[in-house]
């Protein structure tokens, strides 16, 4: 992955994350790398934004107010509720999931990150690796 050229210019990222420090760190690192990032703390509003289909990448935390990340994920992947998204959905979490939820995420998300194991700079590298 290291040898892949970063070409994030203009790519729009929606970060649904309620931990202020974490969203601030991601915002800082992604902006610096050339991404266009929008942060949303609330699950409901995050879902609305995601459904507007203007993003290339969605970073989705699982423990957020009003709607959980897994709920958002299922709505975004339900053709009757959301038209096909162009965005790649990357689940970002620090909570180890139960097996059944884990397999649902595997089915529905395009990527999965344990936040504590990935620094902001590494997150940028990770996102650069997404076509």
């Amino acid at each position: 992955m290291d040898d892949q050229p970063a070409s994030p210019q203009g790519k729009k990222v929606l970060c649904i994350e309620d931990e202020l420090f974490i969203s601030e760190l991601y915002s800082r690192a992604l902006t610096k790398a050339g991404y266009d990032i929008v942060v949303e703390l609330d699950g409901m509003k995050g879902l609305e934004l995601a459904q507007s289909n203007q993003f290339d990448i969605i970073l989705l935390d699982l423990m957020i107010p009003h709607l959980t990340g897994t709920e958002i994920l299922s709505i975004l992947r339900d053709p009757s509720k959301t038209p096909e998204l162009k965005a790649k959905i990357i689940v970002t979490t620090n909570l180890e999931q139960r097996d059944d939820i884990k397999s649902t995420i595997e089915q529905q998300a395009d990527g999965y990150i344990v936040k504590a194991n990935v620094t902001p700079r590494e997150l940028v590298e990770f996102l650069n690796g997404i076509e």
Partner: peptide, 18 residues
């Protein structure tokens, strides 16, 4: 418990990197 430990750790590692 791991989740509770990981969240501040994420922040810590992020700012150290910054």
């Amino acid at each position: 418990a791991v989740h509770e430990l990981r969240t501040p750790l994420t922040v810590l590692r992020g700012y150290i990197e910054a």
